[in-house]
Nucleic acid binder design. Structure first.
Length: 446
RNA sequence: GGAGAGAUGGCCGAGCGGCUGAAGGCGUCGGUUUGCUAAACCGAUGUACGGGGUAUCCCCUGUACCACGGGUUCGAAUCCCGUUCUCUCCGCCA
């Protein structure tokens, strides 16, 4: 969420930011509603002041009246009290009207405010869509096969690693079942990533809810824009408070963890990592990546979140650092990858900058997205009402960042395809072996 | 699922419908005293929004906020209704 004051003072910057992100937002209407509300509010406040003044006089008077025995004096006091009551009584109806008006204005302002995107950072290349993303770094060389390499689908079948048909049978399209060594490999990858973040990088491991309330989705910026991407749980007739949503990323649980809190500067940065199941409806992707383990409704992801001070440089520093953790995972797994600086048009509402990591997938004869690192500044923290206090008592909104450490089973695609052998087996990358009972290769018929 | 209790500031805790943004204590910060520490004493110590200031993080002023949302009233932390959450007991399930 943007600061309303900022929008008021920089409407053009906000408009331009939205435009760069290919989004249409009605800044003018927001400002108009805001102006109207403030006008109503100040009128209301004046009336409240009057009321309060009358009350302050009435208070002691009523106290006297209670004690007073003399009928003559009582009558006098009563008359005085009645006189004092006339004005508040008279303005009461007006006040109720004004309150009503604010109540009708508020939801509209709120809704508009929630749709205002964070303007992209200056160093983000301008572009319309993912086509215009810029490759900034490349690691590793795609392997030249001296045999006809199989796709992960073929490997999965011949090695018995997953079963798509039965997955679809019970759970519908874009579903799967990991089986045998496939299931183990999946767990091994997650475990390796979590261990790395916890034991080598000092992140705090968390197990968070994946079924959350509307406030958590809105606070982390997924709602309202991404509402159609989330599974909604609850009966149609249920009241809003009973409805829950399945999260599409552990980022929600890690970031909303501190919702409505005031941290102290000394406890920043908070570094969290979670492995959680992610649910995505993948609405609007019909016909896209329909085969295999690439685009699926349910997967597991190790996600990293950092909550730091309100300092752009610090945010940028963490952004790079968190990205390096993802890169380290791919390096250890021996998977060639590249970094893409996403262009303005490819950014979501909440990002100031986003860097995707794409990993080499032989079956695509190209790179496929496996990670996404976002820098959000205080956009999420504002929505989450997540602040911190400095030593001298000043209050600020935190900055938040998030990035994939590893997501599986998608990452199994490059692992299987890149490490396959001519005999149809797959060599297990060394760091995964200790999580697979020491297994070094996955071989057919075993 | 049944019965009951509760929700007040960073924490504990008081609060007859008016002088309560809220006693008291703890904590924190500043000061005095002190060789240092401790102790003692004095003072300060919420947030949001609006308006005004010779005004980025300063001052003045107004309003709101005692779980949340309504209501009663000239006036609500205090009374009424609804919701959420927490706790205790019973039952049920794991």
């Amino acid at each position: 969420m943007l600061d309303l004051k900022f929008i008021r003072e920089n409407p053009e910057a906000v408009k331009r930011g939205a435009q760069l992100k290919n989004m249409t937002v009605d800044v003018d209407r927001l400002l108009e509603l805001d102006a109207r509300k403030r006008h109503v509010q100040s009128t209301l406040q004046e009336l409240q002041t009057e009321q309060n003044k009358a009350s302050k006089e009435l208070g002691p008077l009523m106290g006297q009246l209670k004690k007073e025995q003399d009928p003559a004096k009582r009558a006098e006091l009563e008359a005085k009290a009645e006189a004092l009551k006339t004005r508040p009584s008279a303005i009461k109806a007006d006040m109720i009207g004004l309150e009503e008006l604010i109540r009708t204005l508020d939801p509209d302002i709120e809704q508009l405010l929630l749709t205002m995107p964070l303007p992209p950072d200056d160093d983000v290349p301008i572009g319309k869509s993912s086509e215009d993303n810029v490759e900034t770094f490349k690691w590793g060389t795609p392997r030249q096969f001296d045999f006809a390499p199989k796709t992960h689908l073929e490997l999965g079948k011949s090695l018995g690693l997953f079963d798509l048909d039965r997955g679809v049978k019970m759970a519908g399209s874009r579903s799967y079942v990991l089986t045998g060594a496939g299931a183990m490999l999946h767990q091994a990858v997650l475990r390796m990533a979590q261990d790395f973040m916890v034991f080598e990088q000092g992140f705090t491991p968390m197990a968070v809810p994946v079924l959350v309330k509307e406030a958590a989705m809105r606070g982390t910026g997924f709602f309202p824009a991404g509402r159609e991407q989330a599974y909604r749980v609850g009966e149609v007739e249920e009241r809003d408070e009973d409805v829950r949503y399945l999260t599409g990323t552990g980022e929600v649980g890690l970031t909303a963890f501190h919702m409505d809190e005031i941290l102290s500067e000394a406890e920043l940065p908070r570094m969290y990592v979670t492995v959680s199941t992610c649910f995505r409806r993948e609405a609007g992707t019909y016909g896209k990546d329909t085969t295999g383990l690439y685009r699926i409704h349910q997967f597991d992801k190790v996600e990293q979140v950092v909550i730091c001070r309100n300092d752009k440089e610090e945010s940028k520093h963490w952004h790079r650092k968190m990205l390096s953790f993802s890169e380290e995972m791919l390096k250890r797994l021996g998977l060639p990858y590249r970094l893409l600086q996403c262009c303005t048009g490819d950014l979501g509402v909440k990002n100031a900058s986003m860097i995707d990591v794409e990993t080499w997938m032989p079956s695509r004869n190209g790179y496929g997205e496996t990670h996404s690192a976002s820098r959000l500044y205080d956009f999420q923290a504002r929505r989450c009402n997540l602040r911190y206090k400095t030593a001298d008592g000043k209050m600020h909104f935190c900055h938040t960042l998030n990035n994939t450490v590893i997501a599986s089973p998608r990452i199994l695609i490059p692992i299987l395809e890149n490490h396959q052998n001519a005999d149809g087996s797959v060599t297990i990358p060394e760091p995964l072996r200790k999580h697979m009972g020491g297994m070094e290769r996955i071989e057919p018929g075993k």
